[in-house]
Amino acid sequence: MTPAQNSRAKMEARRLAIRYGQKLAIRDINLTIPEHQVTALIGPSGCGKSTFLRSLNRMNELIPHTSHDGEVLLDGHSIHERGLDVVDLRRRVGMVFQRSNPFPKSIFENVAYGLRVGGMRDKQDIADRVERSLRNAALWDEVKDRLSESALGMSGGQQQRVCIARALAVEPEVLLMDEPASALDPIATAKIEELIHELKSRYTIAIVTHNMQQAARVSDVTAFFYMGELVEVGATEQIFTNPREKRTEDYVTGKFG
């Protein structure tokens, strides 16, 4: 039973290719991101998995000379449509990065930031949303008495969860995570992974990770990228017990040099 079978496509890449200048970073990617599931993107460095992740909310366009072919659909509509509001796209498809990057502001202001930028003014509304986001990020109980303290004074794991709360505050539909736990210790990592499990009932999640055990633990679907191509995608259990492609087999068993 492939999880993708009983879930509708939240996002979909069709024949997607991304170039940085002349260099082709990914090519001919056809991949569905199923709704309310966790899709893990794995592969060696330079395989294109992060490029693919960033293409899902057009974050890669911030890199100069980026161009694309093919299309990416969000709820069936192209995210490259003329006139589409990129800021709104990035609100709907939020992102959490490898290095937690809280702003040098209070915990409260970090989470409220996107709301203020988005034009929310009512203090009570903002406070409610901040609390709900911190609760969703499993951080509320730890920080509720120190919301006015600087986010920079928190532990690495807490900082990463503040960043998740900040991403959740603007009520995204899809959450992209690029190595969200690579700089964290095992306990903080376990909290993030537990959080991912909880979040997937409300959000659709795509995660890039170098840690294959992490991909195995948190995801429903795993996609293996190699040298800019999507080699294989399948139910995570299948990819880690019985992959169809030789290159996937070699990668998950550690046979790549």
């Binding site: 195995a216 017990t241 992959p243 998950v252 068993t253």
Partner: peptide
């Protein structure tokens, strides 16, 4: 080692 795929089998 947390073996996978053919190693796990």
């Amino acid at each position: 080692r947390q073996p996978a795929a053919s190693d796990l089998r």
